[in-house]
Nucleic acid binder design. Structure first.
Lengths: 349, 349
DNA sequence: CTGAAAGCGCTTACAG
DNA sequence: CTGAAAGCGCTTACAG
C-alpha cells in the first residue's frame, strides 16, 4: 500500500540517475539519445514496479498538450449524439486521446459557458455541433487559436472545418420518394430552434423536390417548425387543424426522430392510421424505428464515417496546428445519407 | 486578434503588481487578504478585457485537483448509460466539474486500460460501472488512493461505495406480477457476461419469486444467459427448442433491454404473438418501449436520483478525501425500481 | 495592504 | 552516454 504518487525524481533517485534520463527513457527516446540498453531496462523495470504514472498536469504544462478533446453537443442522451459520441470515443482512444463531453441543450449561452470551461482545461481541440444562431462562439474559438471542427451543422456565413451530411439532397430524395409513391399533399416538420442548418437544409431539400414536380405546388401551410419543448401539443393541434379543414396531408417528411416518435404517439391518440392514413419518412434513423408498428422508413446517416472523419481530421489539425497561421483551406466534408425503406409509406392513389 | 494565451504575469506586469496579488484577487480571496477594492477592480477588469483563462495544468499541478471526473461504463451508446451520463454531466457542471467518459465494452482489460489513462490525467474521482468479474481494478483504484463509486453493479466480495437499484427485489416483484397474472411457465433471460451483479441479482429475485409460490417450481431449463454478441441466434434457438419440445413458457422476464428488443424481433420472425403467446416484462425501461406493439411492461429505474446520488457523493468524497485515511464506512445506496404496467402482459388461464 | 520566493512534476535544450 | 538547469503558469506560505 503506497500513499504518495511516485514521481520521476523518485525513480531517478532510487536508481542514482537524473530525472532527465528517466523522462527520456520513459518517453521511448532512449535509443535516439543513446542511453545504454542496460540503463533503459533498469528504468523501465522500476517504473513498472512502482506503477509510475506520469503526471499529465506537469507534462501538459510543459508541452502544452492535454491529449483531450472536447465534444459539445445538444444532448448526449439523444441517440443520434450518443452513437456518434461512442464512435468518436473509440477513435480517440485508439489515438490516445480522451473525450470530455458537454451538453448545450441548444442554448447558446450554455454553449459559450461549456466551451470556456473546457478551454481552461486546455483541451487540444473541439468537435462541436453548435446550437448557436450567430457565429459568436465560433469566432471566439478562432480567436483562442484552438482547432475545432463542426459536425452535423454548419454556418454558411462562417467558413470553417466541418463534417455534415448533405441534408438538402437527402431531404430532396426522401421527398421525391414520397412523390413517386403518388403522394401530393406532403407535409414537412422540422424542430426548433429554426436556425439550425441541418433543419433548414432538410426543409429546403423538401421544398426543392416539391417545386420540381409540376403537378404539385409548395404550400407554406404544410411546413411547420415544431417547438422542441411542446412537441406533443404542437403536433396534436396541427393535426386537428388540418383534419377540421379537411386538408390532412397523406404523407409527411419528419426532419427529426423525436418528432417522428411524437407523431406516432399523436396518431395513436387521435386514431390516424400509419401508413394508411398518413405515410412517414423520418430523418435520424434510430433503433426504435425497427420496432415500431409500422417500422419507419428513414434517412440513415453514416454515423461511423461521420465520427471518423471528424475525429481523424481534428487530430490532424491539432498535430499540425501552428499559432499565428492564417487558416485558408478548410476541411469541409459532406457525406451522403441513405434512404432505408421500411413499412411507414404506402402508395397513394 | 491575439496569438498568445495571456497569463497571470502578463496581467501583473501590465498593472505593476505581483502575480500573487493577481492570483489572489482572481480566486476571490481579495477581501480576506485585505487587497484594496480599487486594486481588486483593476485586476478583475483587465482580466476580463484580456479574456484571461487560468491554465488548469499549472493550477492542477499546484493544487492537485483537476475538477474532472471519469465515468466508465460499458457503452455510452447504450441508452441506459447515455441517460445516466446526461444526468451526471448536468450535476457535474452545476458543481463545476467536467466529465470524461470511457467505454469498456464489458471487457476487463479495456477497463483496466481506460482507468489507467484517466488516472494519468489526474481526474479527481471515478464513477464506475465495472465489467470485471474479479475486483482487481477496484483494488487498484483503492491503492491509487482515488475516490470512486460504483453504479449499477457491485461486488459482494469488495466493500466500497456504490449506488445501485435493488435488483433482487425488483426482479422478485416483476416475477410475482407475472405469477399473479396466472403464468406458471415463466422464463428468465439475462445477458452475458454472467458475473455482472445486476444480472445475477435479477435472476436470484426471479428465482425467489418462483420458489415462493408453492404451485410452480423453479426449473433451470427456463433460465438462460444470452450471449451479448449473438443475441438473435441464441434466442431464436432457445425458442425453437422450447417450441419443438412443447415447453414454450407463457411469460418471460428479460433482465436487459437489448434482449427484450431481440425477443421482439425473433417473435416477429417465427410468428410468436406478444402478448397472447408470450408475455414479457423487461428491465431497463427505454423510450422504445412506449412505441413497440405491444408497449412493454418494464422495470423503471430512477435514473435521475441514481446519477444524483452517485455524483453528489463522489464529489463529497473528493472534497473530504484524505490520503492515508483508512476507509471504514461506505456509502451504499440501494434505490427502489418501479414496475410500469403496459401492454406486454396478458392474464394466463 | 502587497511582493518575493519556492515549488508542484515534468521536458528540453545544452554542456560535458 | 549522462547530468544540471531552466522553465511551463500557477498557488501558497512567509516576510515586511
Amino acid at each position: 500500500m503506497k500513499y504518495k504518487k511516485v514521481s520521476l525524481s523518485d525513480i531517478a533517485e532510487m536508481l542514482g540517475v537524473s530525472k532527465a534520463l528517466v523522462s527520456i527513457v520513459l518517453n521511448g527516446k532512449g535509443d535516439e539519445n543513446g542511453i545504454s540498453k542496460a540503463t533503459q531496462e533498469k528504468v523501465l523495470k522500476l517504473a513498472e514496479e512502482l506503477n509510475y504514472k506520469p503526471n499529465q498536469f506537469a507534462r501538459g504544462l510543459k508541452i502544452g498538450k492535454s491529449n483531450t478533446i472536447g465534444l459539445v453537443v445538444s444532448d448526449i442522451s439523444n441517440q443520434f449524439y450518443s452513437k456518434i459520441a461512442r464512435y468518436i470515443e473509440d477513435y480517440c482512444i485508439s489515438e490516445d486521446y480522451n473525450l470530455i463531453i458537454c451538453n448545450t441543450d441548444e442554448n447558446e449561452e450554455k454553449e459559450k459557458k461549456v466551451i470556456e470551461t473546457i478551454l481552461e482545461k486546455q483541451i487540444d481541440g473541439i468537435i462541436l455541433s453548435s446550437a448557436s444562431e450567430n457565429s459568436n462562439n465560433l469566432f471566439k474559438l478562432q480567436n483562442e487559436n484552438i482547432p475545432f471542427i463542426l459536425i452535423d451543422r454548419k454556418f454558411s456565413s462562417f467558413p470553417c472545418h466541418y463534417v455534415v451530411i448533405d441534408n438538402f439532397k437527402a431531404a430532396q430524395e426522401a421527398t421525391q420518394y414520397l412523390i413517386e409513391q403518388g403522394h401530393k399533399k406532403i407535409a414537412c416538420f422540422t424542430v426548433s430552434p429554426s436556425h439550425i442548418s441541418s433543419q433548414v437544409d432538410r426543409f429546403l431539400g423538401y421544398k426543392e423536390a416539391i417545386n420540381n414536380n409540376s403537378f404539385i405546388n409548395y404550400n407554406d401551410f404544410y411546413y411547420k417548425t415544431i417547438d422542441r419543448y411542446k412537441m406533443y401539443n404542437s403536433i396534436l393541434n396541427i393535426f386537428r387543424d388540418w383534419s377540421n379543414n379537411k386538408v390532412m396531408p397523406s404523407a409527411i417528411l419528419s426532419a427529426n426522430y423525436q418528432i417522428t416518435l411524437t407523431i406516432l404517439e399523436v396518431c395513436r391518440e387521435i386514431n390516424i392510421k400509419i401508413p394508411n392514413d398518413l405515410s412517414i419518412v423520418s430523418f435520424d434513423d434510430i433503433d426504435v424505428f425497427r420496432f415500431t408498428t409500422p417500422t419507419i422508413t428513414a434517412v440513415v446517416q453514416p454515423l461511423e464515417s461521420y465520427a471518423k472523419y471528424a475525429t481523424e481530421n481534428l487530430i490532424k489539425l491539432i498535430k499540425s496546428f501552428k499559432i499565428n497561421e492564417e487558416q485558408k483551406e478548410f476541411i469541409q466534408i459532406k457525406l451522403d445519407a441513405n434512404l432505408v425503406l421500411r413499412d411507414s409509406v404506402v402508395k397513394y392513389n
